[in-house]
Design a protein around this nucleic acid. Sequence first.
DNA 1: TACAGTCGGGG
DNA 2: GTGTACGACTGTA
Length: 744
Amino acid sequence: MQTINGWLFDIYPNETGLTLWLIGEDGQRHRFFQDFSATVYAAGPSARLRALWRSLREQPVPVRLSRAERTDVFQGKTVTLAVEVQQPARLDELFRTMTAAFPDLTWYDGDISLALRHAAAFGVFPLARCVVELRGEKIASLTPLDTPWDLEPVPAPLRVLSLEPDCDPAHWEPRALIVSYERVRYSLPLEKTIPLLIGLAADLRRYDPDVILTSWGDTWLLPRLMQLCNESGMRLPLNRDESQALVERKEHTYFSYGQIVYRGRQVQLRGRWHLDRHNAMLWNDYGLAGVLEMARVTRQPVQDAARLSPGTGISSMQFVTALQKDILIPWHKNQAETPKTVLELMRSDMGGMVYQPTIGLHRDVGGIDFISMYPGIMVKFNISPEVKRAGPPQSLQPAPGDPGIIPLTLAPLLKKRLALKQALLTLPRWDCRRPVYQALASAHKWLLVTCFGYLGYKNARFGRIEAHEAVTAYGREALLRAKEAAEDLDFEILHMYVDGLWVHKEGCKTPADFQTLLADVTERTGLPISLDGVYHWVVFLPSRLDERVPVANRYFGVFQDGSIKVRGIEARRRDTAPFIAETQMSIMEILARAGDAEHLKDVYPRALSFADSEMKALRAGRVPLEKLLVSQKLSRELGEYSSPSPAARAVRQLEAAGKLVRPGQRVRFLFTLGKPGVQAWDVAQQPDPRCVDVKRYQALLTRAVETVLDPIRQSINAGKKEESWDLFPVFPRVSLAPAPPGGD
DNA sequence: TACAGTCGGGG
DNA sequence: GTGTACGACTGTA
């Protein structure tokens, strides 16, 4: 028997069992095989289960049958027929046949991927460090040496080869491919097919990368290479396992978090990973470290983790918990989505606690947040679909008994996130672990957020609306207790929003001045809370439609470390032209240089004149057209628009030029003079700079400047009382006159 | 003024 | 392999 240590790299089914790839500590890439069986469960009347038993005896896929008692989270202990399928590759086919023949039975675990089953069975995950015992090429035992929850796992020595065209193939025709790895970098002309394929094949064999990192590899490059191979009859060893075909995932569009999301097609490799940075979910935010972390904690294979959708990641984690705890995973609930009743609509108003902020500028403000409030509540108070609630939320008492499936799943993730946050607080600014920790923490963030949403989702396997409501009820209670704590310590509450509050007290200017409050809130709620920071000053903005009305989520401010926090205003919106957003940010940076609020009056003139110079640049045509592009996400098919929004008109131009834009994709356009008022960007001909509707951009800029400068000016003037001759100047207003009727 | 369409925030 | 929230705001007619 031979033993090898290494990092688990890839797993997929072959004809008889599983193929596993291991990056050995010896530097070799090993391919092994493993026997593996997958079990599905059926429950129902015993006569029907006996009939199923008989029918399974008479079909060709080898199965082992037994009677098993398992837990259904909604029904409790349940007697089932366990069907152990010994050829994992044939599971899907057999499951389809069984459910078609016995649709009246209740099915469990049928649609759980082999990767998750394997992860649950052995406690492994992508890039887990393992000890493997071998008999020949067969795995006799597989033991993990680390867990997904380690903060500093021994990193796998991945070989990464990057491959990208010399321009964006959606808009231009690339002429060359740029190949780079380690210190090698060169380009291959695309028109010379044979040398291109020979060169690439040679590098793939010589360097034998673990990861092929591409730009537009899913949508353009790999399909193109496959096509070139077909035409020329040459082979390109993209897969490390050359016995396997490339795996293609189709493009699709889906709804998530109230908006439509578009995922382009994906090309996956076997024995190697292909990652397309332009098609990976939130690659920009997290990078490779984030994708790997996602794979570790969700146990999804890395290439899937790269484009994981909301819900799938957290569901995967729940499924692994369920498999390990012998909890049955219902086969997808076939409940049709029923329209919300009036009662439910009213209930939805009772989500998070919102308190109207006090409009205007405030100095020396503590921003305090519960850390991952909703997940923290689920863990602390044991909220899970199968757990009976004890008292009312006002008691802030955990439900009794063993932790349910949701807390079990979330607890280690939450603990790791808190540990990362803690480490980030203490690590010095220059520490190279900082960006990595940041990426990991961000990757966890949305898994945790989504878990809460999933509790309230009817089609989630472990969802239950009562549990969802319990979470928000605890949340409101916790925030109220925080408010009481602050008031008992004589803090003034300026604003509260779901899981955060903004407080002020004369003389409290440093983080230390808020420690008593933090400790008190933790004491009263049992939930971790942290100081987001102490603002030198923060502005809560009024509604645009009625300046007497505050809005909860439009504010900006400057922390004592000089960093700026912005919510809801133009600079935060992805449909704001970069020129407008950057100008607004720059103005806030000028204001931030004031340090404390007393010195805002010193920097205000500078901010005003900066805004003015940007306005002049705009009028003089010195702003590059790219900076004026507005980008909006298409929410539906072009034909489904009932009103010709600017985005819809831009899409019409694109489609006229033969460019299809799918719902969920973004469309970029300029505001232009005359009809139709917009000019789509991603078409062949560049717009004439003279067509730009400068007036409209002036109005947009004016608005963005006023958003940040008006409250500052008002606050300075308020300090000056009646000296009206000394009023600070207003930014000259440019507004759009209503378009003349007819026009054209 | 009404309406249709897009966005943020949660983090 | 997907959560169809809510409220603010903008653009169009």
